[in-house]
Design a protein around this nucleic acid. Sequence first.
DNA 1: CCAAAAAGAGAAGTATACTCCTTTAAGCAG
DNA 2: CTGCTTAAAGGAGTATACTTCTCTTTTTGG
Lengths: 177, 177
Amino acid sequence: MGIKMSKRQSMNDGPTPMRPGKAKSRKYRELWKRPGYLVRRLHQIHVGLFAEECGGEDLTPVQFGILTVLQNGEEMDQLTLSTSVGIDRTSGADVIRRLERRGYVTRDASDHDRRAKIIRITHLGKDCVSRVRPMMARAQERLIGPLDDQERDEFLRLVEKLVNANNEASRAPLGTV
Amino acid sequence: MGIKMSKRQSMNDGPTPMRPGKAKSRKYRELWKRPGYLVRRLHQIHVGLFAEECGGEDLTPVQFGILTVLQNGEEMDQLTLSTSVGIDRTSGADVIRRLERRGYVTRDASDHDRRAKIIRITHLGKDCVSRVRPMMARAQERLIGPLDDQERDEFLRLVEKLVNANNEASRAPLGTV
DNA sequence: CCAAAAAGAGAAGTATACTCCTTTAAGCAG
DNA sequence: CTGCTTAAAGGAGTATACTTCTCTTTTTGG
């Protein structure tokens, strides 16, 4: 159902992003040294690892994120749910519609606000979360597995710092363009 | 033309991924601590910053990646080009087709291998790269801007390590599914 | 030399993740 | 109560990034 990747990986192999030391001329001349490129590749890798670990469940990281948020807070409108996993509302609506189609959530109009759709997780959805949680954890472990404990902490600290800081930046006016 | 994002940002704002210290129960219980989630958010942020910096050029990071690879090596078949920027061949074919539509590259059948399409960058494409390169650099700077010099080096080292290591992992048999 | 295997490409289908525009509903001001 | 603004959702459209299946061409093995 979209992702899958199974055996004969096709998580491509890229340019084997390692070039010795000889680079330096202009800062981001080579693709393999651009932070954005590395982040995109790492994201791809995570999606691949997640799909691999989740075997036959056919669930994506974002779908699982939605389900885990619902399992804590229970009951949310689409917009709140979407922003709480860090995607915009139209993307969220798509993801949630797919989850509904599979019986993992319900979408009912709210009583006191007939514009809003209230999303609730179903038993089927909860079962799915229980089943997939350990697979998700394995994917996370594999993603940062190549780092030792100290590096892991440092990596997570730095990524969090970047995400939080740029989160602010993106909500700032910044005008231009 | 798709991405854009302009003024009233909508690079969403997410859950403001910071929760004090109280988390710990199970390793990846909270979304905001999952490495995969953080990497996905950072990727989103980069795409947003890139679009913002590239103003009216309407070029995506991947499109720019393709163009810069072409500007170095000149002339490549679609498959080599796709893997050299780290995407699979069908995605690459899509991207390249769009670049062709805008006159940035040409796609001609090869003489000695009539299966292959040979991609070449045009003058228009080269002009575009010159124009966009400084914008791309600014996006990269902004992405890792929140880190000091020492952290930056460490972050890039760790991400590179993860990408390289998992690159290997994904080409390993690993069978299962 | 000819059949089988492998390689490049394309088409159809799906998921994420946006854009902009519209519809509908809610809340508030006069 | 009526009109104004805002908020939630949906539709149409696009880009990235996969999947699987198919077509054609090339290479290779007998």
